[in-house]
Design a protein around this nucleic acid. Structure first.
Length: 835
RNA sequence: GCGGGUGUGGUGGAAUUGGUAGACACAUCAGACUUAAAAUCUGAAGGCUGAAUAGCCGUGCCGGUUCGAGUCCGGCCACCCGCACCA
């Protein structure tokens, strides 16, 4: 071990010279100085050792740490330190998700360029992370706004363009007509721009897309292998990808050549179609509007709303008859074609067939506009469902469906699909809800999209030799769109292909791009010849990833997608980036999410100054299991502080006494044996809680119980009494070391150890200490607890039954009744069933 | 609207595979120490009944399965998260 350094020796104190009172400021400064001077957290690739890559989601540098960060990073640090004590070579890096909207807002408010604001925040937050004692390998730190980082993202994007995985098409954005700028969904409040208050409009503009749908099936299949992920997150991703099997079919139109293509998962309800719905942006809608001012007015009205899916789904369903008719492909009936505000141009073909009897949305629309509701599915028992109050969306038996009457939905699906196929107007299709990833942002503070628009050659990717396309950092923001669009000196360039005067793309990347591959870059952060090198495969996949549940879908799906892109580029080997995932819950105060607007925030900085990092870490881990939301409590913090004082005081008292001999298991009296059993039961419990379950709160509770028991044990001043106490204190310090590393660093020294606790081995359970000869069993009568009996651990079943029936209170409850059976749950209880 | 979650004492939570509901802590109360307070230490405590052994009730609500349900199933209610340009 490289740790027998000057400082460590100088700090070592003999027993008895320990400070009586717990002084976190002093202890923490000392421990942090030790770690810094010994470069304790730097990790070097070592082919001989087991690797463990523990990654917490990197923060957006918003200014200072909030409690959510503290919680996230404490969880990661506890796991990292625990794994290190297991002997693994642990990589725990940290960096900055540095591009994004808040920097632009800050620039507007304070006139500071986003780059300067971001870098100041990074410096402040880095200092805070160090103060909290997180064991990060800072030599691998980077910020995503570093050109050395995003140049590789630009490089990959041009590769993907060559492969055909990148394309351009128009997509809808929120447009603020007053500020003349594109708004994020977050910036649209009640349908209005957050700054200007103007009613937001929808606008179609050309944007860059990544073909994530090419990977939809693999992203879906891969979820089955991700056993280390919460089922909840896998379910959310599965639903997000939304694979469905259905039929794509065409409806002919009267008076028009072209056909309307729609997709349905319920071809069995085809005979119930009573109208067609067109998106307001559909080309046919637009064309008809040109000759129909009323329709044009309606479409114009539809454009006054945001683009968020929640807005679309909750808004009032409205529509207008176009006068156009469609022909039902099987019955030949003529069906009205409506423009409907809830039909989205970006999904499928921008047109739907509506079956109001069997789809709730269609039902609501039909009811509102008096359109016919034709029942075509009967329940399994053949009775007609009541569709006067709501649609009947279950499957069942077909009725009113011509030759298909009597078929079950599944059989009708096949029959109708086959018939449509034979007629050449339909085909079975697998469809995904997942849409291609739009990566363009009309913003300044992001990585420039490395494309050039040449009047002659069209779109040309920037060649490798010209990368990175560096974002100019010294800019002024004025609130009306990206400064890049007003910087001809930056955007004007020579076409890389023909040399003619051309223009750079002024859109920047979605910041999800940077966060989709940072985990791999940490393995080789200094690589300047390639995006990734062989060290990526040394460390990947991430063994444990930790972050907020709010990232369950988008970030985690994009990162999984990117990992597959990197794999297909030959840069990494595995299929999935994150082996195990822990989704931490939110930090609440007074039952609500902490936020500046509610004024219920708690600043970690003040707490660290007052109580020390260890108390903050301890409370955060104790107050709730990591996946659940955590209710902040100032008095709970006080309690955590009190526990550390108790632990310190107990150690101090113990160390005032003569040094104990080794524990001699055979020489212990009953009390000592019981206390020692508690020590080893606690080791077993905490090992499981920290290593497998990640329920840090129950692990801490177990150590608290142990410390309470040790407090009683300190009255025993015999040799073996002191020996058991020494063993118990050592166990407590080792078990707590990942959680409260500073206090344990010092206590471990005080208990007489030279190797720092950071590198101490995790304690082992002595099975012989766990042996008991008798235990208490609960006795129930008809499932209700009526008494308990003390029995030998190896007692036979008939002995247990007899003892249970003899228990006096049990006797009272079975008196006059017949015992029907006796259920024995070994080690737990006996239930006497009597009536 | 759609998708995913959560709901247990005064409070945060525990109960890991269907087997003693309330571990551990906070707050409270009592005792010790103190001139006093703070700090610290020790103890009590889900509700109701009872002198007590003990009994009845009790895990959001209604119903079910089981010898036994906080845990499983069905139906509700409330709150939280996500919904593709917040990160």
């Amino acid at each position: 071990m490289p740790y027998t350094c000057r400082l460590f020796r100088a700090q070592r104190k003999r027993h008895g010279s320990m400070q009586e009172h717990y002084d976190p400021q002093h202890i923490e400064a000392e421990a942090q100085a030790h770690w810094q001077q010994n470069d304790s957290f730097r990790v070097v690739e070592d082919p001989q050792r087991d690797t463990y890559y523990c990654l917490s989601m990197f923060p957006y540098p918003s200014g200072k740490l909030h409690m959510g960060h503290v919680r996230n990073y404490t969880i990661g640090d506890v796991i990292s330190r625990y794994q290190r004590m297991q002997g693994r070579n642990v990589l725990q890096p940290m960096g900055w998700d540095a591009f994004g909207l808040p920097a632009e807002n800050a620039a507007l408010q304070r006139g500071v360029p986003p780059a300067a604001w971001t870098r100041e925040n990074i410096a402040a937050m880095r200092a805070q992370l160090k103060q909290l004692g997180f064991a990060y390998d800072w030599s691998r730190e980077f910020a995503t706004c570093d050109p050395e980082y995003y140049r590789w993202e630009q490089w990959l994007f041009t590769r993907l363009y060559e492969k055909g995985l990148v394309y351009r098409k128009t997509a809808t954005v929120n447009w603020d007509p007053v500020d003349q700028t594109v708004l994020a969904n977050e910036q649209v409040v009640d349908g209005r721009g957050w700054r200007s208050g103007a009613v937001v409009e929808r606008r179609e503009i050309p944007q860059w897309f990544l073909r994530i749908t090419d990977y939809a099936d693999e992203l879906l299949q891969g979820l089955d292998q991700l056993n280390g992920w919460p089922d909840q997150v896998r379910a959310m991703q599965r639903n997000w990808i939304g694979r469905s099997e259905g039929v794509e079919l065409e409806f002919a139109l009267t008076e028009r050549e072209e056909r309307l293509t729609v997709y349905t998962t319920r071809p069995d309800t085809l005979f119930g179609v009573s109208y067609m719905g067109l998106a307001p942006e559909h080309p046919i809608s637009r064309e008809l509007a040109a000759r129909n001012p009323e329709l044009a007015g309606f479409i114009e009205e539809c454009s006054h709303s945001g683009v968020a899916e929640a807005t679309m789904a909750t808004m009032e369903k409205r529509g207008m008859d176009t006068g156009l008719r469609a022909i039902h492909p099987l019955t030949g009936d003529s069906i009205p074609v409506w423009v409907a505000n809830f039909v989205l141009m970006e999904y499928g073909s921008g047109a739907v067939m509506a079956v109001p009897a069997h789809d709730q949305r269609d039902w609501e629309f039909a009811t509102r506009y008096g359109l016919p509701i034709q029942t075509v599915i009967a329940t399994e028992d053949g009775s007609l469902p009541d569709v006067s109050e709501a649609a009947f969306s279950d499957t069942g038996l077909l009725v009113n469906s011509g030759i298909y009457d009597g078929l079950a939905s599944a059989a009708a699906f096949d029959a109708i699909a086959a018939d449509l196929e034979n007629q050449g107007i339909g085909r079975r299709r697998v469809n995904y809800r997942l849409r291609d990833w739009g990566v363009s942002r009309q913003r300044y503070w992001g990585a420039p999209i490395p494309m050039v628009h040449c009047p002659d050659c069209g779109v040309v990717p920037v060649p490798d030799s010209d990368l990175p396309v560096v974002l100019p950092e010294d800019v002024a923001m004025d609130g009306s769109g990206s400064p890049l669009k007003k910087m001809p000196e930056w955007s004007r360039c020579a076409c890389p292909r023909c040399g003619a005067e051309a223009e750079r793309e002024t859109d920047t990347f979605d910041t999800f791009m940077e966060s989709s591959w940072y985990f791999a870059r940490f393995a080789c952060a200094d690589s300047d010849q390639a995006m990734l090198d062989e060290r990526a495969n040394h460390w990947l996949p991430v063994d444990q990833y930790i972050g907020g549940i709010e990232h369950a879908i988008l970030h985690l799906l994009y990162a999984r997608f990117f990992h597959k892109l990197l794999r297909d580029e030959g840069l990494v080997q595995g299929d999935e980036p994150f082996q195990r995932l822990l989704t931490q819950g939110m930090v609440l105060k007074d039952g609500a999410k902490m936020s500046k607007s509610k004024g219920n925030t708690v600043d970690p900085q003040g707490l660290v100054e007052r109580y020390g990092a260890d108390t903050v870490r301890l409370f955060t881990m104790f107050a709730a299991p990591p996946e659940q939301s955590l209710e902040w409590s100032d008095s709970g913090v006080e309690g955590a502080f009190r526990f550390l004082k108790r632990l310190w005081a107990l150690s101090h008292s113990h160390l005032q006494r003569p040094a104990p001999p080794a524990v001699d298991g055979d020489a212990l009296d009953d009390g000592q044996r019981a206390l020692r059993r508690k020590v080893h039961e606690t080791i077993a419990k905490v090992s499981d809680d920290l290593g497998r379950r990640h329920t840090f709160n129950t692990g801490i509770a177990a150590v608290m119980e142990l410390v309470n028991a040790l407090y009683k044990g300190i009255e025993d001043d015999s040799d073996q009494g002191r020996a058991v106490l020494q063993e118990g204190l050592q166990a407590a310090v080792l078990l707590l070391a990942p959680i409260v590393p500073h206090a344990c660093h010092r206590l471990w020294q005080e208990l007489g150890h030279v190797t720092p606790v950071l590198d101490a081995a995790w304690p082992r359970v002595d099975e012989s200490a766990l042996v008991q000869d008798s235990l208490e069993l609960v006795v129930q009568v008809n499932g209700k607890r009526r008494g308990q009996i003390q029995v030998a651990v190896d007692a036979e079943r008939d002995v247990l039954e007899a003892a249970a029936l003899e228990e006096p209170n049990v006797g009272r409850f079975i008196e006059g009744k017949t015992v029907r059976k006796v259920i024995v749950v070994p080690g737990r209880l006996i239930n006497v069933v009597a009536n």
